[in-house]
Design a protein around this nucleic acid. Structure first.
Lengths: 141, 141
DNA sequence: TAGCAAATCAGAACAAATCCGATTTAAAGG
DNA sequence: CCTTTAAATCGGATTTGTTCTGATTTGCTA
């Protein structure tokens, strides 16, 4: 997803344009990596030093609802990255548990799953492979 | 996994036997369901009304380390269930997001995954299907 | 450009989880 | 058995990530 596309989605859903929102999206767009709320805060403070964490958290959850950001959880804290599944076809990621860096995996296990027990009404799924990326391995030596 | 087996593992790893630990394991063994720390607390209070949450949390993480409990996360809080992958072959679950109830899925996506990008050293994976179980659907009508 | 709803601020409040020093207890050895 | 000791537990304070609240500011539209 591109920054412009994300802003488009916001507008289309009746949300106002603000520089802070754009900057948040830019920050996420800048890296193929899951960022924590804290990470985003730190980076945005260069440009908006007084920004409150309420704003960051509230915007993040708006973005997640609108499908602009994808969400996961590492070490008990929420992590976010610009949605990319929306772009082409649905897929999943390998995630570096050190730095949040991601890489795409082909396909989705739901496609090859023979059957889900029929006493469950399925609402979603999560498939994530965890590991350590080359950079983080190098760094720890 | 059976309660006795779990106690066995504790002993084998040099942990002491305590009634509280046994009761915690019994509580988890009683249901094919993910329980929160709070759930376990509530249930154990019938027998040990003074139990502190420190004890519950510390024992839970010991159990997770030893592979007695499996861990996941729902609504920002840790959920636990007696390990069953250890029993037979490795597998995954459908999880009811309302009540934590689980049902097994056949197979594991890692087996059919063509390739993981080689700049990642894989350390683990998670595959969970989320949904609402029959009972919870009925209850919400 | 006035008015309004949405967005933001600042800090209080919250909930899950962890830490701490003091006390109790399981279990191994005499 | 009794003693000893390290592990386990207690109770409460603390930390951390996140959400709420009420006042203020800011985009947008008419």
């Amino acid at each position: 997803m591109k920054v412009e596309e994300a802003l488009q989605i916001l507008k289309a859903n009746g949300y106002k344009y603000t520089g802070k929102r754009e900057e948040m999206i830019r920050i996420c767009a800048a890296e193929k990596r899951y960022l924590s709320a804290k990470d985003i805060m730190e980076r945005i403070k260069e440009q908006y030093p007084t920004l409150s964490f309420d704003t960051v958290y509230r915007n993040i959850s708006t973005f997640v609802e609108l499908g602009i950001l994808e969400e996961t959880e590492l070490d008990g804290e929420g992590r976010y990255r610009l949605a990319c599944s929306a772009d082409g076809h649905h897929h999943h990621h390998v995630i570096c548990t050190e730095c949040g860096k991601t890489s795409s995996l082909p396909g989705c296990p739901m496609n090859v799953l023979a059957a889900v027990p029929d006493d469950f009404q399925v609402t979603g799924h999560k498939f994530e492979v965890y590991g350590t990326c080359k950079e983080c391995i190098a760094q720890s030596n």
